[in-house]
Simulated scan of single mutants.
Amino acid sequence: MRIKDVQFGIIEIPLKKPFKTALRTATVLSNIIVMIETDTGNKGYGEAPPTGAITGDTKGSVIGAIREHMLEGLKGRNIADIENTMSFLNHSIVRNTSAKAALDMALYDLYAQRYQAPLYQILGGCRSELMTDITISVNEPEEMAKDSLETVQEGYQTLKIKVGKNIELDLKRLDKIRKAVGDDIKLRLDANQGWSVKEAIDAIKKLEDKGFNIEFVEQPVKAGDIEGMKKVTDSVMTPIMADESVFSPEDAWRLLQCRGADMINIKLMKAGGIHNALKICGIAETAGVECMVGCMLESRIAVTAAAHLAAAKKVVTKVDLDSPLLCAEDPISGGINYEKDKILLPERIGLGFGEIKGIEWRSF
């Protein structure tokens, strides 16, 4: 099974509601889908969301990186030779992690097809079911409390609350949300780098004093401020999770050497795909640190790849893979299945995709 061709298309899916964080607002998911075809007729799929505010990637940069630096070096490669193929991919160009991730997940899709098994079983096979949280966008306190209550009434048990735009308003948001949903619902906070170190420590301590029982706070300060992350981690009882501070295995190593966070959020678009994400899992497990697998604004394609990683590894204890649930429609058949907040991994080989409606495939 050798690589014969690589093509791409654009997928656009409207969101049910605007997705708002401390970094950006989005109303539509508009991503690049890649397809790798082999000489046996097998097809593997991957995805790259152009998330400039986080990864620095745009549609143009993703297409250009693949076309100019990766395409020719991939053609003719044996799918079974995953190690050398991934080494080439990771050294083909610096950064450009979303482009690498799209090709990486398509290659792993084919790799599992080569050995006639679901990908999560190839990678470790820890479990076949996951439980995801669902995100509540940052808005006025009353609107966020309303959105939270409606989400809980629909059957979801864990909410990921976006904060980080205004510290006092953030405290009001959490107060109204906790009163609306009660004490049994798990609340996770994501500040998306929106607080200063002092603000983060002050806010988290106030939340602790109020007994809001926050499960963890994700990326409270700027991504590059590892010293600040450590100060926050050392100063509060609530667990602190690193997200934008950790892209690569090297980032994870540096952060965990100084115990700059209690947990790590792994995203394929930051890591450059499954290959590097597995390395981050190994580093975290060695350090005794649990991981969460999360996503950007991704369709069922990339989220399915992330779910297979999460299902494979015991060190992954939390999942934030709700992006397809935020979409108003889903043109992709196959992949993972949702039952409210439960994610089920079917026993289809590879990533298990079927038809992708409305996509026009183009050559690079």
Score class of each variant (00 low, 15 high):
Met105Ser: 14
Thr135Glu: 01
Gln219Arg: 04
Arg95Thr: 05
Lys179Asn: 11
Glu329Gly: 00
Gly294Val: 04
Ala203His: 12
Val28Phe: 10
Val62Cys: 08
Phe8Asp: 00
Arg24Val: 09
Gly164Asp: 14
His69Phe: 12
Lys340Trp: 02
Asn96Ser: 14
Ser30Leu: 06
Ala48Glu: 04
Gln257Tyr: 01
Phe19Gln: 01
Ile356Pro: 02
Val34Thr: 05
Gln116Ser: 14
Ile301Met: 10
Phe88Gln: 09
Ile264Trp: 02
Gln7Lys: 10
Thr238Arg: 09
Asn192Tyr: 04
Ala180Trp: 05
Asp109Ala: 08
Gly60Gln: 04
Trp253Ile: 06
Leu15Gly: 13
Glu250Lys: 13
Ser87Ile: 03
Ala261Leu: 06
Ser128Tyr: 07
Arg95Met: 04
Asp320Asn: 13
Ala284Gly: 06
Ile11Trp: 01
Glu360Leu: 10
Lys205Leu: 15
Lys100Pro: 05
Pro141Ile: 14
Ser148Arg: 12
Thr51Cys: 07
Ile93Tyr: 11
Met241Phe: 04
His91Arg: 14
Gly182Val: 05
Leu255Arg: 01
Asn90Val: 00
Arg178Lys: 12
Val221Pro: 14
Ile264Gly: 01
Ile136Leu: 09
Thr158Gly: 00
Ile226Met: 04
Lys210Trp: 03
Thr151Ala: 09
Leu159Asp: 08
Ala307Val: 05
Glu150Cys: 01
Val293Met: 05
Leu29Thr: 04
Tyr120Met: 11
Gly228Asn: 13
Asp322Met: 02
Ala306Val: 11
Gly56Cys: 06
Cys291Lys: 08
Thr97Asp: 02
Leu297Gly: 01
Gln116Arg: 15
Thr51Leu: 15
Ser98Asp: 03
Arg362Leu: 00
Lys179Pro: 00
Gly358Asp: 15
Gln193Ala: 03
Tyr108Trp: 15
